[in-house]
Design a protein around this nucleic acid. Structure first.
Lengths: 138, 138
DNA sequence: ATAAACTGTAACATTATTTAGTACAGTTAA
DNA sequence: TTAACTGTACTAAATAATGTTACAGTTTAT
């Protein structure tokens, strides 16, 4: 799972909790990374319609949706996160052996199935759920 | 998903198909990697009880189980593969903010849930299934 | 108008992780 | 007793993830 997904969830929970417009630097401090990285992730969330932004002085990011309605599946998709993937492909397309030439595609299909299973699970978790999990911790 | 998982599945399918003892070099050629890497993966499969080995001259790896009975979940576990994981943790344990200090653990719990979901899926796929998928491809 | 405080994005640097390759001790079979 | 293996450690190379710097473009407040 890419770090961008964790950043996106963290930022949304933080925005939802603070209920105000926050700039990339404020979010970066809480997430523990740099503002540029936050802006990159937030730009994706904006494109995905999960947040709005206010440019100019005193601007920043605003979460106006109902945290009960926003699921981690949406966050996952907005951030182009593939829960399961593998860059490495075994075998060789041009090999005459059917196994060597065909298995990589079969494996990719399996990774895709696993992704779907993950997204199904993520669909059942909302930003509000995460908030509750955090505050119930002691 | 780590490359080791793909290598393990590929090797098992290959062994199952060839029905004979194969050495690391033969498997490496088919998988398209180097023999040392194959040996590292196969050592894990042996430890997991999925294959047997024969050392010495004319030795190698032997798959004696029923390919219908060996599932990808077992392969996943034998190779210590975590389908979903993330090394990067947002926030800071020592921060007084509950969100910053608590969200990383919550996210880890979610990754763990996703892992379980993946393994459940992998449990339904056998080595024999993979073989069939490959040979049905045209 | 214009300065200040932002976002969006590109370019580059650094660090971490994965994969590849080499080497060799230990094992077995002929 | 030699040849062909596995098991494993160590190092190198390639790739991917993260951090950093910089700056153009936008809006607000004065």
């Amino acid at each position: 799972m890419t770090g961008e997904f964790a950043i996106a969830v963290h930022a949304l929970v933080f925005l939802s909790y603070k209920k105000s417009t926050l700039c990339s630097e404020t979010i970066a401090k809480n997430v523990c990374t740099n503002p540029a990285r936050i802006r990159k992730v937030m730009a994706k969330l904006k494109k995905g319609g999960l947040i709005t932004t206010k440019e100019g002085a005193d601007g920043g990011y605003l979460f106006e949706k109902d945290p009960h309605e926003v699921t981690l599946k949406e966050v996952c998709e907005a951030t182009d996160t593939c829960p399961v993937s593998s860059a490495w492909r075994s075998g060789d397309m041009n090999c005459e052996c059917l196994i060597a030439s065909g298995i990589a595609d079969v494996m990719d299909g399996i990774y895709e199935d696993l992704n779907e299973a993950c997204k199904e699970k993520l669909k059942s978790i909302s930003i509000s759920d995460i908030e509750q999990m955090i505050f119930k911790r002691n």
